[in-house]
Amino acid sequence: MIPERFLNALLLGGLLGVALLADWRDEPFTITLATRATILAIAATGLNLALGLGGLVSLGHAVFFGLGGYAMGILAFHAQTYAPVELGPLAIEGTTSMPLIWVTAIAVSSLAALVIGLLSLRTSGVYFIMITLAFGQMFFYFAVSWSAYGGEDGLSIYVRNGFPGLNTLDPIQFFSLCFVLLCLVLVLWSRLARSPFGLALNAARQVPARVETVGLDPKRLKLAAFVLSGAITGLAGALFADLNRFVSPSMFSWQLSGELIVLVILGGVARLCGPVAGAMLFVALEHWLGGLTEFWHVWLGAILLLIVLFAKGGLVGLLSGRPASHD
């Protein structure tokens, strides 16, 4: 059994190592895979806040991922065409600056999470899952029919957006940027988990009624977690769009919401580096199994089944020997 701290370092070190090795051996595609895993890990860490700490099974997290993606797509598209974004009387210039795009992605997705959270947190259990799914579908079909930004075909961005001092088109530099963001998000997650807010959220997941007796509103705690969670997933969406230089309605799809849940469960629910392990495994399987057989999802399903049945704490739980912190 490997101590969880050591395992976390190993996972992050492994991710970084793969990218650096690939850079040294001049294999840009492998770096792109590592970047993909990194970005998915950020998105899943966002979900791990709602799902892991708050126990909120959101089947609509693709909404935030997609909003982040479209925030990037729309801003970059307008920068590409030199036409401002018309928002009623407001005309906003497009931009190719990553930090500005990130701020926009975070703002838009947290606002969406606030509204969706306010409505869906009135329910719980299977109804919560259904409502978040419904919101996901709403956004999906809206994007499909939004012809101004490519509709079903999506939107291609010809040049990757810029970050001051970096050449983002160089795979390893873009990877490093995403990796640093992943580390920052993980630091934030672990601090939140140990803060009074995180502990109260944890308690609200276990016994909401008892949290009320100590003067805390479980709904407000969950809403705050949901908004933060959406913001992080939104940031990942913007990065994902920049990785592919392409956004399409599939970023809003419920399959993607499901994949994010799978990543968290594969790696370990409520584990700091669960989403990192999940994303690495997922991308590796997608690449290798996908190369062997067209039906790689079947094998992914089998692996997921085994993990859910025999390793309740996910990969991290299995390797660290610490049992699941909760179902």
Partner: peptide, 13 residues
């Protein structure tokens, strides 16, 4: 709060 430690139970409240 069963899954929290003694200290965490107190801090949460």
């Amino acid at each position: 709060f069963a899954d929290l430690t003694v200290r965490e139970n107190l801090v949460a409240a």
